[in-house]
Lab assay of single mutants.
Amino acid sequence: HSHMSHTQVIELERKFSHQKYLSAPERAHLAKNLKLTETQVKIWFQNRRYKTKRKQLSSEL
């Protein structure tokens, strides 16, 4: 499990705020920019979407 830097997370968050789903080319581009693997980016987005979904569910209770 590799640790992401604060800067990388900020960039991922910024991208996520604009779009929740990335196409393969977008993911490849973002990964390259942030010096991450595409898998890391993919998993981060999956986890981030899951967290957002959970938060929405709990706020509706």
Rank of each mutant, 00 (worst) to 15 (best):
L34E: 00
L30F: 04
K55G: 15
A28G: 04
L61S: 13
F16T: 02
Q19I: 06
T52G: 10
T7C: 13
K15S: 07
L34V: 03
Q46E: 11
L30S: 00
K53H: 08
A24C: 07
K15D: 00
T7Q: 12
L12K: 01
E38I: 07
Y50G: 10
R48G: 03
K51R: 13
K51A: 13
H18I: 10
T52E: 15
P25A: 15
H6D: 09
F16H: 03
T7L: 13
K51M: 12
T37H: 04
K53L: 08
L34P: 05
H1S: 08
R54D: 13
I10S: 11
S58W: 08
E26I: 04
F45T: 01
T7I: 09
R49M: 04
N33P: 00
L34C: 04
S59K: 13
S59E: 14
H6G: 05
Q40K: 02
S17V: 08
T37C: 05
S2D: 10
K55V: 10
P25C: 15
M4P: 05
L12E: 02
H29A: 12
H1Y: 09
V41E: 02
S23N: 06
L36S: 00
T39K: 09
T52I: 08
N47W: 15
R48L: 05
N33W: 14
L57C: 15
R49A: 04
S5Q: 04
H3D: 08
K20G: 06
K15Y: 15
F16G: 02
T7Y: 14
Q40Y: 05
S5F: 04
H6T: 07
K20Q: 12
H6P: 13
M4V: 05
K35T: 05
A24M: 05
F16A: 03
Q40P: 00
T39R: 12
K35C: 15
F45P: 00
R27L: 14
H29W: 12
L57R: 07
H6C: 15
N33Y: 13
A28N: 05
Y21I: 04
I43G: 04
F45M: 02
Y21A: 03
R49V: 03
Q46N: 07
R14V: 06
Y50W: 12
Y50T: 11
Q40N: 02
L22M: 04
F45D: 00
L22A: 01
R48D: 00
A24L: 10
L12R: 01
E26D: 05
S5M: 04
K55F: 07
Q46A: 12
R49Q: 03
A24H: 08
V41S: 01
R54S: 12
H29E: 15
E13V: 07
L34W: 01
I43D: 07
K32L: 13
R27N: 04
S58K: 11
S2I: 11
I43T: 06
H6K: 13
K20H: 08
N33D: 11
L22W: 03
K35I: 04
W44D: 00
P25L: 14
L30W: 00
S5L: 05
E13A: 04
S2V: 11
H6Q: 10
Q8G: 02
K53M: 11
H3F: 10
L22F: 02
Q8K: 05
S23R: 04
H18Y: 12
K42M: 10
Q8C: 14
K55N: 13
E13M: 09
K20V: 06
L61H: 13
V9K: 08
M4Y: 08
K51V: 08
K35A: 09
R14M: 08
P25D: 14
F16E: 02
K55A: 13
K51S: 09
Q40L: 06
R48C: 07
L34M: 04
K53S: 09
T39F: 10
L12T: 04
S58V: 12
H18G: 06
Y21Q: 04
I10V: 07
H6S: 08
F16R: 03
N47K: 14
L34G: 01
L34N: 00
S59V: 11
H3K: 13
H3C: 15
R14W: 05
I43M: 11
A31S: 04
Q19S: 12
E38H: 04
A31V: 01
E38Q: 06
H6M: 11
T52F: 14
T37S: 10
S58F: 10
R54K: 14
R14P: 02
N33F: 12
S23D: 03
K51N: 08
N33K: 12
S59P: 13
P25N: 12
Q46V: 08
H1M: 10
T37G: 02
R48Q: 11
S2T: 12
V41P: 00
T52P: 12
H3M: 10
I10C: 15
T39Y: 11
R49E: 03
L30T: 01
F45Y: 03
H3Y: 11
K53G: 09
E38D: 09
A24Y: 13
S17T: 08
K20W: 06
K53D: 10
R48Y: 03
Q56M: 08
K42Y: 07
E26C: 08
K53P: 09
N47P: 00
T52Y: 14
S2H: 12
Y50C: 15
L34D: 01
L36V: 03
E13K: 06
E13G: 02
A28M: 07
H18C: 15
A31N: 01
H1I: 08
S17K: 12
S2L: 13
S58Y: 07
L12I: 01
Q40H: 02
K51G: 10
L61M: 15
I10Q: 12
K42D: 08
E11P: 02
R14A: 08
H29C: 13
E13F: 07
H29F: 08
Q8N: 02
K35G: 15
T37P: 03
M4T: 02
E60M: 08
K35W: 04
T37E: 04
L30H: 01
K42L: 10
H29V: 13
V41K: 01
R27F: 08
P25M: 14
K51I: 11
H29M: 13
T7V: 12
E38F: 05
K55I: 09
S17L: 10
S17F: 15
L30E: 01
A24I: 09
S58I: 10
Y50E: 10
T37Q: 03
E13S: 03
K20N: 09
H18L: 11
V41A: 01
T37N: 04
K42E: 15
E60T: 05
K55P: 12
K15M: 14
T52V: 12
R54M: 12
V41R: 01
R27C: 06
N47F: 13
T39C: 14
R14E: 05
N47Y: 14
S58N: 13
S5G: 04
T7G: 07
P25Q: 14
L22R: 00
K42W: 09
E26L: 04
L22P: 05
I43A: 06
A24E: 08
A31D: 00
S2P: 11
E38S: 05
M4E: 00
N47D: 06
R54L: 11
R54H: 13
L34T: 03
F16I: 02
K35E: 07
Y21M: 03
K55E: 15
A31Q: 01
I43S: 06
K15N: 06
I10D: 08
E26N: 03
Q8V: 09
S5W: 05
H1F: 10
S23W: 03
L12C: 05
Y21K: 04
W44F: 04
F16P: 03
S23H: 02
K55D: 15
H1A: 08
T39Q: 13
H6L: 14
A31W: 01
A28H: 10
I10P: 01
L36Q: 00
A28Y: 05
K32E: 10
Y21G: 02
Q46T: 05
I43C: 13
L12D: 01
Q19V: 06
A31M: 02
L22Y: 00
K15P: 00
R54A: 07
Q19K: 12
N33E: 14
A31L: 02
Q19A: 07
K20I: 05
K32I: 09
H3S: 08
I43E: 10
Q40S: 04
H3T: 07
E60F: 07
E13H: 04
N47Q: 13
N47R: 15
Q8I: 07
Q8S: 03
R49K: 03
S23Y: 06
V9A: 06
K42F: 09
T37L: 04
H1E: 09
W44P: 00
R27H: 02
F45S: 00
L61D: 14
R49Y: 04
K32V: 10
L61P: 09
P25Y: 11
L36P: 00
A28D: 04
K15Q: 10
A24W: 09
Q46R: 14
L61I: 12
W44V: 01
R48M: 10
R49T: 01
E11L: 08
S58G: 13
E13D: 03
S2Y: 12
